[in-house]
């Protein structure tokens, strides 16, 4: 057994309460109430919470991007309705992440003001529905890749699976947006993640 594993086992033994809470987070996020999820002996709740916190930052940004789009007056039906639906998905992701981070003993990152997000996303360059769709598609693709890219860093494999599920939602959003923009479907396999 490697020194690292021995050490984290020790940490687990002295830090039982956090590990139990981690199980709670997992159950909650994975949406499978019951016996399925078990925090692993060598899980590191602080590290997992830190990863989820970066993800939460992404969700805050996405929610605000859709808000900026919805308030711009540039979105026509049915695009507006779809934007609001996707925003509601991101809100659900946010709520789940906040609960999970708290359960892991972390402090969820705060949302910034919408004007800060507008500045970050260079919203002043937006002049059409197409611009908004392009921004949203870019963010969704980036988020899908981010969720895939952090998977190997989770110490709790159930959270890694949750990250995969979130990536799937973002990929679904990206696919809809890209097709609304008339963008070509990726010609090569495995274009996401890596």
């Amino acid at each position: 057994m490697s020194e690292e594993i021995i050490q984290s086992r020790r940490r687990f033994l002295t830090d039982g309460s956090k590990a139990t809470l981690s199980t709670a987070a997992v159950v909650l996020l994975a949406g499978c109430g019951g016996a399925v999820a078990q925090a692993r002996m060598d899980s590191d709740p602080a590290q997992d919470a830190a990863i989820l916190n970066v993800a939460l930052g992404l969700e805050h940004e996405a929610i605000n991007a859709y808000q900026i789009g919805a308030e711009s007056g540039l979105l026509q039906q049915p695009v507006l309705e779809t934007a609001v639906l996707f925003q509601s998905h991101h809100k659900a992701h946010r709520d789940a992440l906040v609960d999970a981070i708290r359960s892991l003993g972390g402090t969820p990152v705060e949302e910034k003001s919408i004007s800060e997000y507008a500045k970050e996303l260079q919203a002043d360059t937006i002049g059409s529905q197409g611009d908004i769709l392009m921004l949203a598609a870019r963010l969704e693709k980036g988020a899908a890749n981010a969720y895939l890219g952090v998977i190997p860093s989770f110490t709790d494999p159930t959270l890694a699976q949750v990250s995969g599920r979130l990536a799937a939602d973002e990929t679904m959003h990206w696919t809809v947006l890209a097709s609304a923009l008339g963008q070509q479907v990726p010609q090569q396999a495995l274009s996401f993640g890596a």
């Binding site: 930052g57 260079q122 980036g142 890749n145």
Partner: peptide
């Protein structure tokens, strides 16, 4: 960079 990093980073502004 556009596909792997731009989910969290921009060249010009602080984001995630």
């Amino acid at each position: 960079y556009g596909s792997r990093c731009a989910g969290c980073h921009s060249v010009e502004v602080n984001r995630i």
